[in-house]
Deep mutational scan, measured.
Amino acid sequence: KELVLVLYDYQEKSPRELTVKKGDILTLLNSTNKDWWKIEVNGRQGFVPAAYLKKL
């Protein structure tokens, strides 16, 4: 499993997105899109802007 660090808080703006908090370490599911990465948070899957995340 690949992990990502959340660099900035992000509030979901659609049902396909997820809310994340700065400092969270989460599972990366897909990073093929350069702008939006798919991650998992508490069993939910969704997208967060790639600029808000850093691969560990």
Rank of each mutant, 00 (worst) to 15 (best):
N42K: 10
T19G: 06
L56Q: 05
W37K: 01
L26E: 07
D35W: 15
Q11R: 11
K1W: 12
G43K: 06
V20D: 00
K55W: 05
L3M: 12
K13E: 08
D9L: 02
W36M: 07
K55C: 07
R44P: 01
V6K: 00
E2M: 13
D9E: 05
T32K: 15
Y8M: 11
K55Y: 10
R44Y: 08
T27V: 14
Y10G: 01
V6L: 02
D35L: 14
E40L: 08
R44V: 10
V41G: 14
Y10A: 01
L18I: 09
K54G: 05
S31Q: 10
K34H: 13
Q11S: 14
V20H: 02
Q11H: 14
L26K: 02
T19W: 05
L5E: 09
K22E: 08
S14N: 13
E2K: 09
Y10R: 03
K22Y: 05
E12L: 14
K1N: 13
D24P: 00
I25D: 00
L26A: 15
N42T: 06
G43W: 04
G23E: 02
E12Y: 07
L28R: 01
V48S: 01
V20P: 00
L29A: 04
L26N: 05
K55I: 14
L3H: 13
A50Y: 02
Y52G: 07
N33I: 06
V48M: 05
I39V: 14
L53T: 01
L3Y: 13
K1D: 11
L56N: 03
S14L: 07
V6E: 00
R16W: 15
L26G: 14
L7D: 01
L26F: 12
V48H: 01
K34Q: 11
V6M: 02
S31E: 14
G23Y: 04
K13W: 05
F47T: 03
T32A: 13
G46S: 03
L28G: 01
D24N: 08
A50R: 11
A51H: 11
L18Q: 05
W37E: 00
L7S: 02
W36E: 05
L3Q: 12
K21V: 10
L56G: 02
K55S: 07
L29Q: 04
V20A: 03
S31F: 07
K22T: 07
R16P: 06
V41C: 11
R16Q: 14
N30E: 14
E12C: 11
F47S: 03
N30H: 08
E2Y: 12
V4D: 00
G43R: 05
L56K: 03
V20G: 00
K21Q: 11
R44T: 09
G23R: 02
W37D: 00
V41D: 15
E17H: 07
Y10I: 01
V41L: 14
V20L: 07
T19V: 06
K55P: 10
L5I: 15
K34M: 11
L3R: 10
K55G: 04
R44F: 08
D24Q: 15
E12I: 11
G23C: 06
W37G: 00
P15W: 09
N42G: 14
L7A: 03
N42C: 10
S14T: 12
Y10K: 01
Y52Q: 04
E40M: 10
K21P: 01
Y8H: 15
K38R: 13
V41R: 15
L56Y: 11
E12F: 10
I39S: 03
N42V: 07
